[in-house]
């Protein structure tokens, strides 16, 4: 369970974001919907420990992330959080497997990689260099790298941002499928993808003081 309490983030350009208190339940999938600049990615980065909040706290399974040092946050992230970036964050000159095996540097067991790649439909690309893959395939590799360590939490920042709708939809379906049973929080601006998630959160409401978690079945998509 991830609890957001009294969270604010002020940037050097004096832009400030205040988040309403919210709780993400374990094992559920959430889609954070909202316009650019409303603080979706910032929230994910704070949960992942990549950014520090100005005030307030993020509590994961009763443990406050805000009180951890950067090293402790890094350690927590490598062990418990799978992070998927909009721009993939892959080393283009290396192969798919090398990009996953990079986690071995931190002692992560990557033995399940072929199985995960198969689920994502890119096992045949395991020895291909990233630079030779399409955008959809690259995002699947990024998902595989996030999933392979069996994290409790998966954070996806605009995973379909660089893909067209059809490919993006395929990627989201695959992401939700491989994230089954884990807490998945995905940021996207495309509300048509909401049907694949358990809940939808409108970030514009969240940052204006009102938060409404809408189960996707009830949402007007």
């Amino acid at each position: 369970m991830i609890e957001i309490k009294n969270l604010t983030k002020q940037f050097q350009n004096e832009t400030a974001i205040t988040y309403s208190d919210i709780t993400f339940e374990s094992g559920k999938s959430y889609m954070l919907l909202g316009a650019s600049g409303c603080g979706k990615s910032t929230l994910l980065n704070i949960i992942a420990g990549i950014l520090s909040p100005t005030s307030g706290s993020v509590i994961i399974d009763g443990e406050s992330m805000s009180q951890k040092s950067q090293k402790e946050k890094d350690k927590y992230r490598i062990k418990n959080i799978g992070y998927i970036f909009q721009d993939f964050k892959l080393i283009n000159e290396m192969s798919v497997m090398d990009n996953i095996n990079i986690l071995k540097l931190e002692g992560v067991n990557t033995q399940s990689a072929p199985e995960v790649l198969e689920k994502l439909g890119i096992l045949d690309k395991k020895n291909s260099k990233i630079k030779h893959l399409s955008g959809g395939q690259k995002q699947r590799v990024a998902i595989a790298r996030a999933i392979v360590k069996m994290p409790d939490i998966i954070l996806a920042d605009e995973p379909t941002g660089n893909l067209n709708f059809a490919i993006g939809e395929e990627v989201i379906k695959a992401l939700v499928e491989v994230s089954s049973g884990k807490t998945l929080i995905a940021v996207t601006h495309d509300e048509r993808l909401g049907k694949y998630f358990d809940n939808i959160i409108d970030m514009n409401e969240m940052t204006s003081g009102i938060v409404d978690i809408i189960p996707s079945k009830e949402a007007d998509l």
Partner: peptide, 14 residues
């Protein structure tokens, strides 16, 4: 490359 590795959780020590 270093910031990429850090983002995916590789420690600076490693």
């Amino acid at each position: 490359e270093i910031s990429l590795m850090r983002l995916i959780g590789i420690s600076m020590k490693k």
